[in-house]
Design a protein around this nucleic acid. Structure first.
Lengths: 174, 174
DNA sequence: GTCTATAAAGCGATAGAC
DNA sequence: GTCTATCGCTTTATAGAC
């Protein structure tokens, strides 16, 4: 993949986040990236589906470095709350949707289910490894579900405080 | 609204749930409902947007009767777990997405934000009234976020048990 | 009230000049 | 590597027969 393609992946992710896969048109993409259709198809020969697939890979890579890796290096009591802070910043306290999460509840799904499954599996595995306690599996599910649910609810009620307060309560009960 | 329109609202909701608003085409709708375009535009003069709007109203009405109303009639210790069971059945342990929730994280949103806000506000208010305890607001957010997050996660990991176990843990900590 | 036919616009994708 | 022009198709929506 060339650097022009690499550079526009964040903009693509943002579009898919806000409008979904079918709701994001090539004309929206040319507008947002400043690249014509010719350039886009030079960078992404397989078209829109590849744009989403690579945007998802880009997101996974970011999480691997910024979220999953640190969980393997420190002890749970410290690193889980740290993770929640980093993730809260990434999702802008729920103002920003989770692309992986939103694709898992709607959209064509089939071709991208693998990306989504791998993302959440890797995240969960990293949390389980950090916890190393009884029912770590259940607690990890609880953490991930609370994050995803807080995003949905704070967006639905248009109130980022709901996200922050949900994370505070999550920290308290861990 | 005529009865033919009323009758096909559940089928419409199911389509929008699985494919999103933009991902659901009129040809998919004619196939799923058995109604031609002429009939559809007779029932829904304002087209696809009205189909979604009325499907959302239909969902809200169902929740009002089956979920919100019972919360106002009984005491919290009994009715909250009962609500979780009814809702779990409705969402088929996360196999079925929440249309309101999925619209709140993606899609055109703007025209439908009001429906979504009202749905979650009413649900939250009913829970708060049933709880009648300190920080009822926070606990209600916790309940709603856990439900929404459990749907996202169990769909992403393709494992309905995650939904059921999340609800079990939620009951335990209430 | 339901159908078929059709209109107008936008879609994803391609070709070819530069 | 980026552009413009264009293809073929599907989209939403409408018109009019029955």
């Amino acid at each position: 993949m060339n650097s022009a393609a690499q550079k526009c992946l964040p903009a693509l992710a943002e579009l898919f986040r806000e409008h979904g896969f079918e709701g994001t048109s090539l004309s929206m993409i040319t507008r947002a990236t400043g690249l014509g259709k010719g350039s886009l198809y030079h960078a992404f020969p397989d078209g829109k589906a590849q744009m989403l697939a690579l945007a998802l890979d880009d997101i996974s890579a970011w999480f691997e470095n910024a979220v999953f890796a640190p969980l393997r290096d420190e002890n749970a009591a410290i690193c889980i709350p740290q993770m929640l802070d980093i993730v809260g910043e990434y999702f802008k306290s729920g103002r920003r949707a989770c692309l992986m999460g939103s694709l898992s509840v709607a959209e064509p799904a089939d071709p991208f289910n693998q990306h989504i499954l791998q993302y959440f599996s890797a995240w969960k595995a990293a949390i389980v490894a950090a916890l190393a306690c009884k029912d770590a599996d259940g607690v990890a599910d609880d953490i991930l579900a609370t994050i995803q649910g807080a995003i949905v609810l704070s967006r639905a009620l248009n109130d980022p405080e709901i996200y922050d307060q949900s994370m505070q309560r999550l920290k308290n009960r861990l």
